[in-house]
Design a protein around this nucleic acid. Structure first.
Lengths: 342, 342
DNA sequence: AACGCAATCGATACCGGTATCGATTGCGTC
DNA sequence: GACGCAATCGATACCGGTATCGATTGCGTT
């Protein structure tokens, strides 16, 4: 039943000691080239493979990193994962992915699980629900390298990678204003998320700079990040119920964008068709909703940068105390036409 | 630097032997309840965690399973992964995901990597490029449990889970016929994939049963599964170049559906608007392309079933020789309207 | 001849668990 | 009082590697 050959098998076969074989395999200088060749050849022929588990136990290192996102079925995160994977594999790490589904409990479970599984470090984008960071604090305090990406937590001294959410949101809102829209609502994510605050700030700044006043009643939060469509439906129905309906909506995330468009299709009929601009990395959204402008985040790049930083932390020989906060630029994809006059 | 407490630490602290502590922790009957309590309490207080790596080495079992898909940024696969995850976690396994990006070389590398990492089993959906199965054969021969899902390989005696591709394709084609379309092209996936053949068979059967003849010139393959848009563009341009253009296209996969619609938007202008029906699990596609009918696969369920079977294989005490081929039903989501008469 | 030194390889401990085997103790039985 | 037996716990080997320390050999040096 699947018992691969070990160093001892080789040692026995070649009448050497395990130590010698081990050193030969790792190309140590203190092994006779002749012996080295014998070992290498025998290993090759019997297709010997190092047992990474034994190695992990010995070196206290698993060469694997944990990734926690809310869900992979989300263009932004799946693109980020591609980026993570590319750097991780290049450095000999493999990645263990788990999804929080925007639930704080699930996130805690996943983190524990990964830490128990002895990952060498964790890349995490927080769940929409998370307000308590004890479990992360604790692991970080115990020395486990952690890097935040996208949805970061400022209270922890470690590397953070995000996109310029404020500027992106401002660009989107300004874009709507430029196209002639005047009552711009904001469909926001869970209020405690870093990205929510930053995007809200950008939205507000754009409004203010253009002489609009920020009306809190134009802002609706989705406390679970839109993980159930019902939540988004409620938010959209709220907009629909207003006497003076928004003529445009700035949507805070990919998932919410999809949810919002779904809800509008369901409830609005044909007499109400607000312009929509939102954060999204979905190719498909761009493809079909011709009047949907989007802010694209450099998801792939974000994954790469975050992984790079994490591996630096993991492989650093000395404790790191200088942490970086990398902020990446976003891109506005314009599709909305000017507001028709009525 | 992150050194968790071990069984020996506990043994030392409580003046017991490591064996006793180990047995107390696993609730062995031959340990005095009193002692057991002391150990459990001390472990709890100092938040002892079993070292899964040591366990893996000892038991030759890692409690992790490898998943190989072409990409997670694909609705079908990300949904399947959700299903896989749900069953895996429930059984105490974690999943290691890797992407082949529809490249055979990458797939081989991933499989080796996973096998080296001592996963207990592998769930795989083959890449579009794969025509040589030696690497899989070899691992399977060596005793590594493998379960195919979606894109299966019949040459290997193991469990397989797929959806009823032939019936789904037939439904889609029949649907197009019912709506009045007469020249139905087929945008197919890589020719050697199981799903390609099955879907082609369904397409052909529907045509034949309705008295149409199957014209090979109406069928175009995408040898890389549409992993580059260029490939799909070429295929669609071929359809466009035909004297008698197809009035409908049956598209073989999710990715191809997106690619096809993108290409049509890019090249067709407004004077050509064929009806499209295709395999897809994308919510977004359903949302926007109102004249796009889709065949939905039970991706989540497929992931669950496949994982269940894999875990059965892994945990079976005796060699398994009876293998199942589970086929799940598909669903047709009708959106296309009847063909306008001209 | 005696010594130093480099080259080459072996024996052993250890990583953190668990399985196996054994040791000790107390108690009931004949 | 000798023995059997159950209850409880310890010592040890092992999983598959590597690091540490040591042993052996040959050769050049003085």
């Amino acid at each position: 039943m699947f018992k691969p050959i070990t160093i001892k098998d080789i040692a026995l076969a070649l009448d050497l000691s395990a130590s010698t074989v081990s050193r030969a395999l790792s190309d140590s200088y203190e092994i006779n080239p002749e012996t080295k060749k014998r070992v290498l050849e025998y290993a090759e022929k019997n297709n010997y493979k190092r047992n990474p588990i034994a190695l992990s136990l010995k070196q206290r290192k698993s060469y694997s990193i944990g990734v926690i996102v809310c869900e992979v079925a989300n263009s932004f995160f799946s693109q980020a994962i591609d980026g993570i994977e590319s750097i991780a594999y290049k450095n000999g790490y493999n990645i263990v992915i788990s999804q929080s589904h925007d639930s704080s409990d699930q996130e805690i479970m996943n983190i524990q699980h990964l830490a128990n599984r002895s990952v060498d470090g964790i890349l995490i984008s927080l769940s929409a629900e998370t307000t308590n960071f004890d479990h992360i604090q604790k692991l970080h305090g115990a020395g486990l390298p952690i890097v935040f990406f996208d949805r970061i937590y400022d209270g922890l001294a470690t590397h953070k990678v995000s996109s310029d959410n404020k500027k992106g949101a401002k660009m989107a809102t300004q874009h709507l204003i430029n196209k002639g829209y005047r009552k711009i609502a904001h469909l926001a994510n869970a209020p405690h998320l870093s990205i929510t605050k930053e995007r809200l700030a950008g939205y507000q700044e754009a409004l203010t700079e253009n002489g609009f006043k920020v009306d809190p009643s134009n802002i609706t939060y989705c406390h679970h990040g839109g993980s159930s469509q019902k939540e988004v439906d409620t938010a959209v129905q709220y907009f629909l119920s207003m006497k003076d309906k928004p003529d445009a909506i700035f949507v805070a995330s990919d998932r919410l964008s999809i949810g919002c468009l779904t809800a509008l299709k369901k409830f609005s009929g044909n007499n109400y068709d607000p312009a929509i601009a939102g954060f999204s990395n979905s190719d498909v959204l761009d493809l079909f909703k011709s009047d949907f402008s989007s802010i694209r985040q450099p998801a792939f790049e974000m994954g790469r940068v975050a992984t790079d930083l994490l591996i630096q932390l993991i492989e650093s020989k000395y404790p790191v105390h200088e942490y970086q906060s990398v902020v990446l630029g976003t891109e506005l994809i314009e599709r909305i036409k000017s507001k028709p006059r009525n």
